[in-house]
Simulated assay, not measured.
Amino acid sequence: MTAPIETTGAAAEAQPEAVLVGAEKGQIEGRSLGQIAWSRFKRDKVAVVGGVIVILLILVAVLSRPIQALLGLDPNAFNQDLIDPNTSLPKGSFGGMSGDHPLGVEPKFGRDIATRVLEGSWVSLVVAFGATILSNVIGAILGVVAGYYGGRVDTIISRLMDTFLAFPLLLFAIAISATLQGGAFGMEGLPLHLSVLIFVIGFFNWPYLGRIVRGQTLALREREFVDASRGMGAKGPYILFRELLPNLVGPIIVYSTLLIPTNILFEASLSFLGVGIQPPQASWGGMLREAVTYYQVDPQYMIVPGLAIFVTVLAFNLLGDGLRDALDPRSR
């Protein structure tokens, strides 16, 4: 056996020059939790693809009106010359596809399907994002208050959550939307329909996030940083909004990306049933409702808006799954 090599204290100690060189080259670099989560997220190729699709969908929705103007097409313009008067179906093959109408035209009226899908995209995303923001604000505030204070406050808020969860949401939404179709609160038409859908979907969905936030708060309120804030004299509101809520951003973001596609489907369902967005305003659910009569002879009229809903919901779900794994790898 060879004798161990002895090193003197001076030789074993790192030289200052070496430390400086290493620092200059960035060999030792701390990373924040956000940077760690981003590096995990980038390794999930499926989630990255979902995120790219979501960004493209948002851009398409925001730029839908300029795109329509660029193409010179009106989603509500009738093109009766493209419709066979005997069958009420588009002339030509594949639903009347042409250079001017790349996705064809709808039966009976001849309105361009591509521009109506573009028009419906911003409607669905406005309702989905608006309802998600409303439910998140209510759910996050009530959830963190219930989890932090506990006792009677927790009991009252928890029973309120149970009450809202017991509502038959679809039937309740149909009743409210149908009642307010004509006009209410000084609004009418599309602004009224959008506001009603955002309120109904968002106001009755907050208990789902509220339960998640409450459960996370019950664990966080016993942590050292909360005790330190109390020891320094911090009051309840300061601890709630400056200490607890910032540590709940991750679960809220993940749940939001999973709630948005649910809200898109809910809005499409209400429009499909005739109590959501009303014609002539285009919406994906409304297009599916109008396509029911013609799906056997002109399936493309149903396939195009159906694919739009499918791709949007799938992209948000893939993004949500990736964010969940990146922010909480123990959930795998």
Rank of each mutant, 00 (worst) to 15 (best):
K45N: 04
S331R: 12
M287F: 07
E6S: 13
F185L: 15
P85I: 00
T2R: 15
F225N: 07
R65D: 09
G189A: 11
R289Y: 12
V213S: 04
M287R: 07
N205S: 15
R65S: 09
R152C: 03
L89S: 08
D81I: 11
L318G: 05
E24F: 07
A12Y: 09
L20G: 07
G104L: 00
S229L: 02
V21R: 15
S135V: 02
I212L: 15
F204S: 08
R116Y: 08
G92F: 13
Q181D: 10
S88V: 05
G9Q: 09
A173W: 12
V49D: 00
N263K: 02
N136K: 06
L319M: 15
P102A: 10
G95M: 01
G285T: 10
S39D: 12
W38E: 01
F167T: 13
R152P: 03
G26L: 00
V52S: 10
L244V: 15
V213A: 09
G322P: 11
P279Q: 12
P107V: 02
H101V: 00
I28E: 03
V213W: 08
K91T: 14
E224V: 04
F272K: 00
I260V: 15
L190D: 10
L171F: 15
K108N: 07
L265G: 13
L171W: 12
G274H: 04
E267W: 05
K235A: 14
S158V: 12
T217W: 06
A228Q: 04
G104P: 06
I174V: 15
Y208E: 09
V213K: 01
Y255K: 08
L171K: 09
I198A: 06
M232A: 11
A166T: 11
F241H: 11
P329L: 05
S177H: 13
N76M: 12
R221E: 03
A282G: 04
A12V: 12
I201S: 04
E119R: 06
G274P: 05
T179N: 13
F310W: 11
A14I: 08
Y301Q: 13
L70H: 06
P90C: 07
F164C: 10
